[in-house]
Structure formats: structure tokens, C-alpha cells
Write a protein that binds this DNA or RNA. Sequence first.
RNA 1: GGGCGAUUAGCUCAGUUGGUUAGAGUACUACGUUGACAUCGUAGGGGUCACAGGUUCGAGUCCUGUAUCGCCCACCA
Length: 904
Amino acid sequence: MELEKVYNPKETESKWYKFWEEKKYFESHVNPAKKPFTMVIPPPNITGILHMGHVLNNTIQDILARYKRMSGYETCWIPGTDHAGIATQNVVEKSLAKEKIFRRDLTREQFLEYVWKWKDQYGGTIIKQLRYLGSSCDWPRERFTLDEGLSDAVKEVFVRLYDKGLIYKGKYIVNWCPRCTTALSDDEVEHRDHEASLWHIKYPLKGTNEHIVVATTRPETMLGDTAVAVNPSDERYKHLIGKTLILPLAEREIPIVADAFVDPAFGTGMVKVTPAHDPNDFHIGKRNNLPQIIAFDVHGKMNENVPEIYRGLDRYECRKKVVEHLTEKDLLVKTDKHKNAVGHCYRCDTVIEPYLSDQWFVKMKPMAEKALEAVTSGKIQFTPERWVKVYQHWMENINDWCISRQLWWGHRLPVYYCNNCRQQAEAQISNLKSNPETAQKEKWIIVSKELPKKCPHCGSTALEQDPDVLDTWFSSWLWPFSTLGWPKENEDLKYYYPTDTLVTAADIIFFWVARMIMAGLEFKGEVPFKKVYFNSIVRDAQGRKMSKSLGNSPDPLDIINEYSADALRFTVAYLSPIGQDVLFAKEKCEIGRNFCNKIWNASRFILLNVDNNMQADIKSLDSSLAPMDKWILSEYNQAIKETTKYLDELNFTGAAHILHEFFWSKFCDWYVEFVKPRLQDEKQKEVVQYVFLYVLTNSLKLMHPIMPFITEELYQQTKGLLPEKSRDESIMISSWPVFNAVPGYESSVKEVEFVMEFIKAIRTVRVDMNVAPQKQVEIVINTADKEKFEIIQKYLPNMTLMCKVGKVSAGSVKPRFSAIIVAGGVEIFILLEGIIDFEKEKARLDKNCQKVIKDIEGLNNKLSDSRFLQHAPEKEVERLKAFKKENEDKLASIKKYIDVLQAE
RNA sequence: GGGCGAUUAGCUCAGUUGGUUAGAGUACUACGUUGACAUCGUAGGGGUCACAGGUUCGAGUCCUGUAUCGCCCACCA
């Protein structure tokens, strides 16, 4: 049988993916005979396209899924997508705008129809692309956060939390995006430092010619000022507390109040207070019973509460005008440069505006305490561990979660208002209560999964659903159990929950991971997963985060086309540092491509050299195994042990390195080269063929989780050759190799290692002496150890092939014109008449000598230190002594022959 | 302003609980192609493990401090 000389990944990959899917190997069913291994995919946004972050994330998940499947687990990897409220609404609005269709001209229903249409067309892009990567997701279980079942879970959770008093409505300062015209949670705001100005403004004291000075970075907000605050202990201003100021431009009267929040050392020590547009001022306002004047509309334009001249102006235009007018009136004292952090919308990057509005919140503290405990106690394990601290810090300082969004795309709040009750209540209380305790008890609010027929209080049917939708993460945080059918209790949920390992990027630790843990504990009474693996963030060669806007993310599909999916997967696993960022450039995929090529060609060589009618099995052959066979079998076993260990530790880099080292350096470079002579011997050939196939097929299994396609192709190609009783239909359902150290191989391993050292030493001398590569040399061995000489004689055919030694003889005198090496405690003379350069040879020996002397010196220092001898473990002392002896023997030999050389 | 992490070969990174002579890939140098593979082979050069202290018989590894870089959190107008 002969393989194609060149591996064709493209054809192979689509062929086997189709095969696996048709055979339903990815699918999982409740199976009490097996332990489950469950993962949920971090659902990509429907607006997304595959980028390197997804590649890394899904490669890791797929490695785990395939490894666990082969290890006998009922493996279920649930895929799906996230509706991504703001992001999707923005994308669809933009795409409609190109056709001159604007959301403001559409009804909610019409707009949503467009979004669903868009979703059907583009929403599955990433999920489709994941197949090219080889992802073994359980596709029939694919879920979408707006699916009926998941929406039901969302409503169920909302109602439960509301009934428990953990959800409340209130009028608070929230982060407002004037472009998206919605509230955002604190986490959705990205802070960046801006070079801003700090304007110092005079506020005249009523009835005097005096004024005070306040400093602000947002002068336009002064139109909503309702006070100026000073620190109550600030001696400079004590006398002013209670006095009245004339707010310039707006020409309103505002009081000077005392509040401990004010830092006397900052600015002038006087703060203008805008309760409706600044979180601090909001609280100062509450404490001092100040009115709240909302000065902007939802788009960030000045509203009817400001003087007419500013109405309708954008907040920044207004800022300019305000500064201008203040200057004209000589009320601007000075303008300082000032650096401060400004919040931006994480979806559209618009500067957010703190804004007073009615929103819904979740009380987080009670849930956070349990969720923190789950991680600190180790019930949930983080890898890398350092994320525990980050998690802990957030959990201990958690704020309530603003969950309402003024959008159309998303889960509508299961909240209904009775207009009748509301009117009655509003007649009684003029302004809305913003105390959560009372607000949620307001009668006109009905929280229910379904639209109630009538108001339970007054019987009115004039009910209206809250127009807002929920934060996208309000559905994502239920993902580990909503995807399994919750709130319906069923067999899947019982069997698969809790899931095992969550693989995700650390940038959503708060958005998603933390909240899933809270939700799991709150609604299932159990952690949602046992382990969390935080994969690296992929950066470009300059260390910049890969992003669409920078255009620095190579398209993974291009990489797959150019290098193959296996190459990409291997490279990503091989490079990915543990918990650090990974710098990526597509050229790095040469690592994976070259390795695939090596695997392919080694297999090709093996298939060229095996007969179809092999009957042997490892037991019947054991007595015929040569030391080299035993060596590679030992190495192979070691590789199983380490690969398994690394995969269990979620150290994918470790696993990839072990496999690379084992297959390439040990199997190809040594074993395959070494046994070539034995292929000429009919009897020996059978043994070699067996070991070839045994190690190859099993190595393929070890490599399959990382490189699924090429390993399947080669596994199939070797089918029928290895005398296994029954060969699995596919490598992906074959079983993971088990470490099985065979005792009694130690002496063979030692023997082979001795010969290897020997061969390497001869190669080095040959290159140093510029011996023509094909020229055979003769060597003379000087050793008192007869056994060693016999070993060397035995391996002459190998040495002929691997370091071109044509003849070996014994002798205790250095022949003339020979180079000398000491390896494995044996003196070797390489006959190089007419070739040897005595100057070079002497230099070489001198260099060797220097190194050995240095080593001995170091060892002497240690071994003559009584404190070392006293404290170090005996084993360590013995080891060093033996090493010293070895070096001394070597030095003696080299020195002796430097003298001999001198004489020649 | 707080917290976390990083600093090892030209580059990208490994380095398990402290214990030989600090590794890999890549790049570089020399040599080599008629039968597995030039996406290859053989050999080689290249590191006072950021710096300064400390603990220890022994530190790349543990502790403290410094520097540089990065990330996260944060209501200083």
C-alpha cells in the first residue's frame, strides 16, 4: 500500500467531518452505563464571524471533548448562539439604514421581523464555521438564547427573583448610551482616560457681589444643578452652608449644602451638584433632599428643562455654548488640563452619560456570597488559579445589576402594568418612589410569565407590558441548565448537569462566568460546572488585541485553507501559553503544518514497509523484541502517561510538546532510522512491522484530540494491517491508550541510550573534522568493559547507517591519525588518516577539556562543603559523586590523548 | 487610586513539589538530496533566567523591595 506523496488536507477534512456527523459520533444520549462529560459552548453572538479567539476557545473545547470521548465518557458538548441584544440591534439598524429604512419609522413588530430575517440569514455563520475547525459539538442540541425553552427559563427566573424580592424597579442613575438609547450595566461601560479640561466657574452668592468657584469637567450639566456642596468640616466654607447661590445661565436659586463626600483638597473644595446626571451627585441629592432636574433627553440633547437657547443642542455643542456664555459674562475663572476616566458604550463606543431613569435591578449580594464560596472552597476550580483573586475581588464589591434595556431585540420583561391602578396611585403620590422596598410592592406592577387576563387588584383589563427587554446576559447566565431543558425537570438535566469544564476567555468572567455560578446555585442548588479554564487572549505580533476594527485578525478560514485545520489546531495548542496572552501570526502555523507533514510521511514510510498478512501480536512477539523496540515502547508508554497527565491538568501546550517530541524526535529520528537495517531480515522484519504499526496507530490516537483529521485519515489507511481483533470504525470512537509500563525493559533502554550517545559523539567529530558525509570510517574501541565492546559490535549495521562507521575493532593504543572521543565511559578512536587536522583536533579536545574541568570544579566546591554534605539528601550527594567520577575519568582520558596528539 | 500578572536564547515561549551541565520551536551558521519527509536530515553558535537584597547546604523556582510592560477594577467633581 502506498500513500500519496503529499497530504491533501482539504479533501480529507471535509470527508471525515461528514463521516463523523453521518455516523452521529458527536451526538450524546443519557447513558447510565457511562459517566457523562458535559460542556456548554460560550455561545457566540449571532453578529460574530469566526476569529482567532473562537479558534483558540473551540480548539481547546474540542480537544477535551475528543479526549474524554475516547476515555470512555458520554461526552456532550452543547453548541448554540446568543441573540446579543444591543450588538444585533445595532447591526440590523445599520444594514437597514443602507436601504433607507429607519427603525423610527417602523413598529416594534416590523423591526423584529427584520431582525429575525437577518438572524436566519447570518446568525449561524460562526456555528457553521466551527465545523471547518473540526468541532465535535452535539449539533442536534444546538440552542439559541431566544428559543422558546430558553425564553421560558428567562421568564421563570425573573418571576422567581421578583417574588423573592431580589428584583426591583427603581429610579436610579444608570449608564446611558445616547446612541443606543438604552441603559447599560456597569460592566458594559469601558473606562478610558481622556485629556479633558477642568473648568472653574463662578457661582454668584445671592444678594451680594461675592461668588464662589466650582470646578467641573462637564460644564453643560450645570444646567441641571440643584445645589453646591462643601465638606461640613471645611473651615473655609462653614459660614456659607445654607446660603443661596444664583446658578448662572439658568438663573435659578440653589442652596449650598454640606456633604462629607466632598474632598476639600480637590479643586476649590466646592462641588456643583447635578443629581440627575452624576452618580455621586445623585447620592448627595438623596442625602440632602435636593430636586432632580433631568437636563438631557434620551439622545443626549438638551431638553425643555434648560433655558430655551440651549434646547435641542447636542450635549457637546451645548458645552461649547455654555463655556462661551460663561466667558462672555466673565464667570469663567480658568481652564485647567485634567485627565480623567470617561465611560464608553462597549458596543458602539459612544461616551456614556449618567442618566436618571426608571430601571430594573437584581440584588446581587445574597447570590454573590454563595457564588464566592463555591470558588474559594474549590467546588469550582479555576485554571489558571490566579483568576480566583480577580473573581473574589469583584464578588466582594458587587453592585446591583441593571437588567432592563430600552431596546426591542431581546427577552421582553415579564412585567405588566395596570393603568387603572397606576393612575389611582399616581394621584396619591406625586413623584415615583425610588425605594426598592416600596417600589416593587406598587400595586400596578404585575410580574407574571404570561399576560394576565385582568388586574388582580382592580380587575381592569387595561394592562400593558413593560416595553423594555432584558440584558442579554440575563439569558446567558442560565445557559448551563436552560440548554438542558430547565425549568422542566428531565432526564437530560439529571444526567448532564452540572457540566464539567467551562472553557472561556477571561474578559467575560464577570459578565458571564460569575453570573452563571450565581444562577446555578440559586436555581439548581448546584454549581453549573466543576472547572473553568480561562483561555488566552489572542493578540497580533505587535501585542495588540485582535479586533475587527483594527483589521489585524487573520481569517481562520484562510488559515485552514492554507495550512489545514489540524495545523492550525496544533499550532494554537503548541503555542498557547498557560493563561498568558498569545501572540499570533498565521505564519506560525508552519509549526503545525510541518508536524502534520512529518506524521504523514512517517506513516507513508511505514505503510511502504508492512506486509498485509501480518499475524503477530505483541505477546507472541515479546521474546523477539530487540532492545530498540523495547526502548520505543518505553518511550511510547511515557508519552501516554505525560499526555494524559497534561490533558487532565488542562495543560494543552504541555500535551502538544510531548507529542511533538515523542513522535518526531524519538519515533521518527531514532526508532525509524534505527530499525531500517532490520527490515532486510525476514524474521526481524515482522517484529519491526508490528512495533511500527502498534506505535503508529496508538500515537495517532494520542494525537487525535489535537489533530482529528489527519489522524483519522491515517488510522483508516492502516486499517486491516494491525492484527487487532476488531478495529474501531473510527479513531474518534476508539479508546484512549493506557499507560502500561512493561517491567524488565530497563537494561534494554540503557543499552540503546549508550549506543545513541555513541552515535551522536561520532557524528559530532565527523562534522568537526569535515569528513565527507558519505565516507565510511573505522573506529577502535578502548574499554576494559567487554560487554560494552560487544554492544558496539552488535550495533555496527546501525552505525553504518547513522554515522557511517564501517568497521569496529578493539585496541588499547591510540592509532596514528585518529580523533578521540570519550562517550559512555568508553574511549573511541576514529581513524581519519589523510583527513584529520591536528590543530583542529587539539583545539576540540582543549575545548572539551575546559568544559569538563569547569564542571569538576563546581562539583568539587559542592562536595567539599561540609554543610552541603550535612544537609543535602544522601541521594543527591551520591548523584553528584558519581557525576564527578564520570567527569574525572573523562578528563583523564582527554588529557592523556592531548599529550599523545602532541607527540604525533 | 486600588488589585492582578509578566520579565528565561535574536523572536515566541516551556521549565512540575527548590537539587545535575536551564530546554523547545523559530531565526542564524556549516555540511548534506536517487527511494518516508527540503514542510527534510546531521552538527553547531547563542542565555551572569529584568535589577537589588533576603531565606537556604543549594534559588530560574520561595520572600521583600525596585524598574519596565500589560491587564482588570474604581463615583474624585
